Simulated assay, not measured.
Amino acid sequence: MRKFASACLLLLFVTFNAQSADEGAEEYGYYGFEPEIVTNYISNRKKLGFVRISVELMVKNPNDLVSIERHDPLLRAAIVEILGNQAEDKIKSLSGREEVRRECYEMVNRLLEKETGRAMVVNLLFTKYLYD
């Protein structure tokens, strides 16, 4: 009888914790720019350099994806402008790439705040990053 009571208490505890975890879990959504973003950057060589990236925007509320899709051209243009103004050393280094990612993230949120009244993006991810 004692083992049965212990098993019931353990089952109750596990069930309660699973429900609490589900209630506390946040639902995120992702918006990917299609097609990939391809643009030129300032190269140290005489040849023009280019960068090709895939960008995913992470939002806390999946309902915000509609607003982000509506402003896709504005956000894409801002990212292209940021990438196009970077030096070759920054594009090709890991620390420089992180700086560019943060700059894009901040710009996207500033634009969304201006257009919608609030910043929606929780994170901006480069899922592909190729350069020449």
Rank of each mutant, 00 (worst) to 15 (best):
T15A: 15
S95W: 06
E36T: 13
A87D: 11
K92I: 03
E36L: 12
K92G: 00
S95Q: 08
E88K: 00
N40A: 10
R45A: 10
V108C: 03
L112P: 10
L57G: 03
G96F: 13
N61R: 15
G96D: 13
L83H: 04
H71Q: 11
E69Y: 04
G24N: 07
N61M: 09
K92S: 06
V100D: 05
K60N: 08
E27D: 08
R97E: 11
V59H: 03
Y28P: 00
A18R: 10
E99W: 01
E23I: 10
A18Q: 11
D72A: 08
C104E: 14
G49M: 09
R97C: 00
E23S: 03
D72F: 11
E99A: 06
V59G: 01
N44R: 15
G24H: 06
E27G: 01
V55R: 09
R70Q: 11
N63S: 09
R45V: 03
E26R: 10
M58D: 01
K46I: 05
L57A: 02
E88N: 00
N85H: 04
V51N: 03
I91S: 05
R101L: 12
T39G: 12
T15W: 09
D22G: 10
E113Y: 01
A25I: 02
V38G: 03
I42A: 05
S54V: 04
K114E: 15
L75P: 13
A87M: 07
L57Y: 09
E113A: 07
H71T: 04
E27W: 05
Y41E: 08
V66A: 08
L57V: 07
K60P: 02
R101W: 11
E56D: 15
Y28A: 00
V66M: 05
L74N: 03
I79P: 01
E81P: 06
E34S: 11
D22F: 14
T39C: 12
V55P: 07
N40I: 03
M107K: 14
R101N: 11
I37T: 05
I53Q: 02
G96E: 13
V66I: 13
E81N: 14
E69P: 02
R110I: 02
E88W: 03
F16K: 07
